[in-house]
Amino acid sequence: MLNEYVLILVSTILVNNFVLVKFLGLCPFMGVSKKIDTAIGMGFATTFVLTLASLSSYLINAYILIPFELEYLRTIGFIVTIAGVVGFTELVVNKTSPVLHQSLGVFLPLITTNCAVLGVALLNVGQDNGFLASGVYGFGAAIGFSFVLVLFSAIRERIDSANVPTVFQGTPIALITAGLMSMAFMGFIGLA
């Protein structure tokens, strides 16, 4: 039982990394990876929301959509759930810790359109994951996302001071770097 969850974690963080192998959550990956600090903030916010969102979309799916045979409304149902979770998180963080709100606040609205969140919810349904497994899957995906995001932002800070040919400056070199990272992550395939 526990074994299964460990396997899910290893597979989502390293082997099937959401960003580099499954291509989910690329917008924030490219958008907020210019500084390590913001990358860490985004990582925390995403981890929290993603875990909560995958649990609640499991509940929505199992107790509302399936009993009422509304599976075709899954996309709409999930996106509303996610927007709700994001709004809820924002409220809670705002009430409990203004400091945290200051550092995470800007990222929270962005998370609604992070395709990794909706992607995890949909993949959970596709793989018939149970309640706990859904949560672990979401958590693992988020840790994998944050891990790669922080690594990538560290590399980008170094690239800033490198002498890159003019046409490759900015986006192209960032994309190629991501490609090389992705190649490195392919090496984990044997693990799970």
Binding site: L20, T171, P172, L175, I176, G179
Partner: peptide, 17 residues
């Protein structure tokens, strides 16, 4: 494979630049 997608898009953006 995934790396090809990143590198390919990087090259296309470079060509546009």
């Amino acid at each position: 494979l995934p790396p090809g997608a990143f590198i390919g898009l990087g090259l296309i953006v470079a060509v546009k630049n």
